[in-house]
Amino acid sequence: MPLHSIINHNLTTQIYVWKIEETFEDLFDEVALNDVNLIRLNTMKSEQHQRGFLSVRKLLQESGLTDFDLHYTQDGKPYLKNGKFISISHSHEFSAIIISEQAVGIDLEIQKEKALKIASRFMDISHLENLSQTDKIKKATIVWGIKETIFKIKNEKGISFPNHIFESEFSLSDQKATAQLRFDNLIEDFNIHFEEIEDYILVYAFQA
């Protein structure tokens, strides 16, 4: 079944993960879209992007919601009409949503060597010392996810991954980390959780 997993982080936070195996037609037949999102779907040029978009609507159904409960701000940040927080991510074969009573961000990334090649552009590369090549790729992917999740929570123009978001040192076995956003004369702390799902890294964050 394409519903890969449901992660109950706590009583008020659930993560839903979908493995995208269906055709576009099968997914489209199983969801109902509001008019705005139907237009949005039809403007997408990539079928992979369309399938990711539709699989997110399948995850909404798994959580007891529908596309009609999901809205977007002018800046593109998703929100729910019931007042709960939501964050969305999809990458290649997987999609994920997190729903919580706290402000949250989620990111799903496939592990690729590219993350390591560009690591110096977005992270403290000293955090990759004394790791195998495989673990360096894994950790660089996690750090990218950390920065993506914090950016999704704040959703403010001008935030720079290397200049404003700083991850604390962590071990891969910890499955959690902390990070700080230093931006606009404020310092804000975030609690991070991460885990592997097949060849992907799932990261989600809460503002501390």
Rank of each mutant, 00 (worst) to 15 (best):
L128S: 07
A103W: 05
H193A: 00
V36D: 13
N42L: 10
F122Q: 10
E93S: 13
I88E: 07
N130F: 14
Q207V: 05
L131K: 02
F24C: 11
D107P: 09
S5H: 03
H71F: 15
E113C: 01
S171I: 08
K136P: 04
E129W: 03
D75A: 15
A177H: 08
N130E: 15
E188W: 01
Y200I: 02
K136T: 07
Q175H: 13
E109G: 07
T13R: 10
E93K: 13
N191S: 12
Q175G: 02
K45G: 04
Q180Y: 06
K58H: 10
S132Y: 01
H90R: 14
I153K: 01
S100E: 09
L202F: 03
S171R: 12
F194Q: 03
D29Q: 10
L41R: 13
S120T: 14
G145P: 10
G64S: 13
I142G: 13
F151P: 00
H164R: 02
Q74K: 09
V56K: 06
S173D: 10
S95R: 03
V143S: 05
S63L: 05
P78E: 12
I187A: 08
S120A: 14
Q102A: 11
E109F: 11
T23H: 02
Y79I: 01
L27V: 02
I118T: 13
L33T: 08
L41S: 12
D26C: 04
I39N: 15
Q50W: 08
V104N: 11
K45P: 02
Q133W: 04
P2Y: 05
L60M: 13
I39D: 15
H90L: 14
E195A: 01
K136A: 10
F53V: 12
I137Q: 15
Q50C: 04
Y16D: 11
D189P: 00
V143R: 08
K45C: 06
K176Q: 14
E109N: 12
F183E: 01
D199W: 00
Y204I: 02
F206S: 10
L186R: 10
I88C: 09
F122E: 12
N34T: 08
D135F: 10
S89K: 01
L38H: 14
T134G: 07
H71A: 15
I99V: 07
M44L: 13
K176L: 14
D67C: 15
N163P: 03
T141K: 08
Y72H: 15
R121G: 14
L11E: 11
F24G: 08
D75N: 15
S100N: 03
T43W: 07
L128E: 09
H90F: 14
V56M: 04
Q14F: 02
F206M: 08
H90P: 12
Q111Y: 01
A119K: 08
N185Q: 11
P78F: 11
S55Y: 11
E156K: 15
E101W: 05
D124F: 04
D75R: 15
D67W: 13
D189W: 00
E47Q: 09
I142E: 09
E93A: 11
D35Q: 14
D67S: 15
V31D: 04
H92W: 08
D26P: 00
